[in-house]
Design a protein around this nucleic acid. Sequence first.
DNA 1: TGTCGTACTACGCCTGACGTAGTAAAGATA
DNA 2: TATCTTTACTACGTCAGGCGTAGTACGACA
Lengths: 111, 111
Amino acid sequence: MIQISSDIIRGYNDTMILYLLLNKPSYGYEISKQIKELSGEKYVIKETTLYSAFTRMEKNGYVESFSDQDNTAGKRRTYYRITELGRQYYREKCEEWMLTQEVVEKFIMKQ
Amino acid sequence: MIQISSDIIRGYNDTMILYLLLNKPSYGYEISKQIKELSGEKYVIKETTLYSAFTRMEKNGYVESFSDQDNTAGKRRTYYRITELGRQYYREKCEEWMLTQEVVEKFIMKQ
DNA sequence: TGTCGTACTACGCCTGACGTAGTAAAGATA
DNA sequence: TATCTTTACTACGTCAGGCGTAGTACGACA
């Protein structure tokens, strides 16, 4: 069973997360489930990878975090919302992906 | 100008190099020029990246090195030849690429 | 004589991914 | 009522690939 290596996905975890934030804010656990589902169970992001991506992206200004206010009891949950800069970064990553795909294709043999 | 980031290409440099070794042995400088050419000048592998890839792949048994015998004067040149294990690894990487592509596509918006 | 192209080697840093471990609350199950 | 599972994280440290910087050495050619 072929697995997606962390080397090829490296740098695209951020892009996947941003994609899922395009239409509404979300939080770690939900994002994680959505990535699994959308990828058809083919890719499951590791928790540490996910949360460190959030931290990094917040530092870079791609997302903003806020606390769950609707939450009646404890169990804090941190939501992330994509920023304008994040949207721009996402668009650039999409373009980069298309270019990368085009290049790598040349070195791949499909049989 | 969008550049291919080292994070997305990470782990695929080996694959590209192996592709160029499939039909004949080659050496650093030649490989480097071929990658540039085949990618349509869109990707230029860094020298250190290239040579460390050779070292790594030799250690892993994907390639074997031999010295240039035809070489009359000094200017040593190290050739690399792909091994059976290397071919197998290459095929696996190709499959991995197809899978990765399929997954990442789901998170990319083409406009 | 100096610069350019060829053909590398050495060293060390950076960053993203991830293994391991721990915390804590809510809900399910026995 | 106890504990197991799911949810929802945080902390810490390691690893590996890519790459910046620098240096070596030979041949050509101007």
